[in-house]
């Protein structure tokens, strides 16, 4: 009997945690998006371009090559490092870099919402089956310390990736990116990457206006996760379909101005300075060190 009662208590705990999580999702994400406006959670393209083209921070002065080379280093770190303390340190360093770039911190918090939502919606299902020391359990369902750690780890990894990507995009001129991508990727991959990058801006712009148009007709007054999911699903699908039409127009406009399959780039991109090389070297060394010894922490 007592074991039944304890099982029931466990069940209640699990149920309460699930309800709390769902409410947290609804409150923090759904509510936030509904009340503050979904469009604030989409990166502001004009603002990104403004910072990348006209920013004057010390990070803007760093050679684009240095920032690009550091990207795979960051990706390596978030792929192989599993120690949460190390990942939190990297996140702190990347946020500091963002701050040093004189980029808007408040907006970063908004822009984190969608990636966190995406990752959380997947990992939320995974954490219940991670073995380890139980926090709560009911039958086959176990919420372990390791499960919670996995959840937080994946979120932190996502935030590192998103934040560094934003730093890169918001502190590097598009023409420099064009030049570098055309140097490091073979044709036609380079062209695909460049056009995708540019076209992403146009698609997001269309998406934003679509959300605003739907919002003005009461589309976002829907309540409930399912309805919200359906709403955003249809918006994204519509944006995807419309992007074909848009792509056709853009391609015509580009062709009529002489585009023949290769984006012309004749910019000089400054090479990394001695300090830049040293920074890359230290970052690579630290990554290897973290990977080698991180697992023993």
């Amino acid at each position: 009997m007592s074991s039944d009662i304890s099982s029931l208590e466990d069940f209640m705990r699990v149920a309460l945690i699930i309800v709390a999580c769902v409410n947290a999702y609804r409150g923090c994400l759904g509510g936030l998006m509904t009340n503050i406006g979904f469009e604030k959670h989409l990166p502001d393209l004009g603002l990104i371009t403004h910072y990348s083209e006209f920013g004057k921070s010390p990070v803007h002065e760093i050679s684009p090559w240095t920032k690009i080379i550091l990207l795979p280093v960051v990706v390596f770190n978030i792929t192989v490092i599993i120690d949460l303390r190390l990942l939190l340190m990297i996140l702190f360093a990347v946020v500091c870099l963002y701050w040093a770039s004189e980029l808007p911190i408040v907006l970063l918090l908004y822009w984190w919402t969608l990636p966190v939502f995406f990752v959380a919606s997947i990992t939320f299902l995974l954490i219940w089956s991670v073995p380890g020391s139980d926090l709560v359990s009911y039958g086959p369902i176990h919420l372990t310390l390791e499960g919670v750690a996995l959840f937080v780890t994946l979120i932190v990894k996502t935030l590192i990736g998103v934040t560094y990507s934003l730093v890169l995009l918001m502190t590097t001129k598009y023409n420099y990116l064009t030049h570098i991508i055309s140097k490091i990727l073979p044709y036609p991959l380079s062209q695909i990457a460049l056009l995708t990058y540019r076209f992403l801006f146009l698609t997001l712009e269309g998406l934003k206006s679509m959300v605003i148009a739907m919002k003005s007709r009461g589309g976002l007054k829907l309540s409930g996760i399912r309805k919200h999911g359906k709403f955003y699903g249809s918006v994204f699908a519509l944006a995807f379909i419309r992007s074909f039409d848009k792509a056709d127009h853009v391609a015509k406009a580009m062709q009529s101005r002489g585009y023949q399959g290769k984006l012309a780039s004749s910019y000089y991109v400054p090479r990394p300075s001695a300090g830049g090389y040293a920074f890359i070297f230290v970052a690579v060394l630290l990554s290897i060190f973290s990977y080698s010894f991180g697992r023993y922490f």
Partner: peptide, 14 residues
């Protein structure tokens, strides 16, 4: 030179 009706598609650079 062709100036399209939809300037949004024609003006696409940063």
């Amino acid at each position: 030179g062709l100036v399209f009706q939809d300037s949004d598609s024609q003006v696409f650079a940063p």
